[in-house]
Design a binder for these strands. Sequence first.
DNA 1: GCAAGAATTGAACCATCATTCATTTCTTAT
DNA 2: ATAAGAAATGAATGATGGTTCAATTCTTGC
Lengths: 191, 191
Amino acid sequence: MKARLTASRERIVAAAIGILAEHGYAGCSVAAVAERAGLATGTVYRHFPAKADLFAEVFRAASQREVDAVARAAARESTAAERIRAVVETFSGRALQSPRLAYALLVEPVDPAVETQRLVFRRAHAALLAGYIAGGVASGELPPQDPELASTAVVGALAEALVGPLAAGVAGPDTIGGLTTFIHRALGVSP
Amino acid sequence: MKARLTASRERIVAAAIGILAEHGYAGCSVAAVAERAGLATGTVYRHFPAKADLFAEVFRAASQREVDAVARAAARESTAAERIRAVVETFSGRALQSPRLAYALLVEPVDPAVETQRLVFRRAHAALLAGYIAGGVASGELPPQDPELASTAVVGALAEALVGPLAAGVAGPDTIGGLTTFIHRALGVSP
DNA sequence: GCAAGAATTGAACCATCATTCATTTCTTAT
DNA sequence: ATAAGAAATGAATGATGGTTCAATTCTTGC
């Protein structure tokens, strides 16, 4: 049955995301993914030509979910400053909620083929932000600046501040507030 | 001879840094390192108990060199704003000079044991910056803020803006100037 | 019911490297 | 000069984990 096939494929992707969120990429052997999906190892290869292709899709799917959540939150706001705040808070809140997944999506070592997808993830967030920044610059709400560079730097700052601590220290109580101030200032939001 | 031994050890580390700067961590098989050092594979294990130990030292050495360069540049300045500018410019200039090495030190996938050293590298930079920021806050040159959080975010912003482009776009002509402005504003340096 | 064909299984295969170690080569003290 | 010991060699070993495939189980149309 056609539906059965699609269901299997989706179970595989879901299983991979689950393991990613619990044990990180390191725990994602094909055997582990298959077992969690309730399938045999070989079956994975009926749906994906190689592990890299599976994880390209896994990263794509998980990333899309994150970017969508951020975009949805930002869409509710009307000024550039508010949209940027929404981006920072949503991104940070979700990262702190699922730190293992955030770590996997943002910085955990993966093989080079998958690395490409990660780039896409970071760039998708940056592109979203770049749009808001460009809008703010155009309306005069923000000072002139290169929205590409600024948005890239913001994504880097968020990733480092939120995920770096996973291995080293810990996120403090006002991490999100501090980051919001930092980024508002960096982009020239007037106080 | 004692000197001969030390020389070998240093040649191994130097060879590893060389390959790191040319082909990244992926090219750093023990065999490749040994060949470049003009030694047999097995000899590496007379100097280091395991590959992870070798690369812990490699990362430590390469990182120290970077942090020292940044610290030296900052030490020449006297205000917090100038020191921060020196940090950003030195860090960025060096990263753009040796992009492959910067990528390896900052973000390239490495095995978990080595990952720890990378953390140390990023934290060493952050700690340096945190000191300057704290000084600026104490003297009233900068507004009150958490120097730890701010310095971590700055390192993340720099890394992302400088090394992300390695795989995606390219650093533009005024990347360093733009980053300096971004970070000065973020930390509240008065214009 | 029952073939024909698709889907699934999971044990075997293979490639990649880190690691080891029996052998050889070099140092040095007598 | 030479023997004892240290250092270096590099082919063999072993572990990991992605990938394959012959055998088996399930679906479906007649």
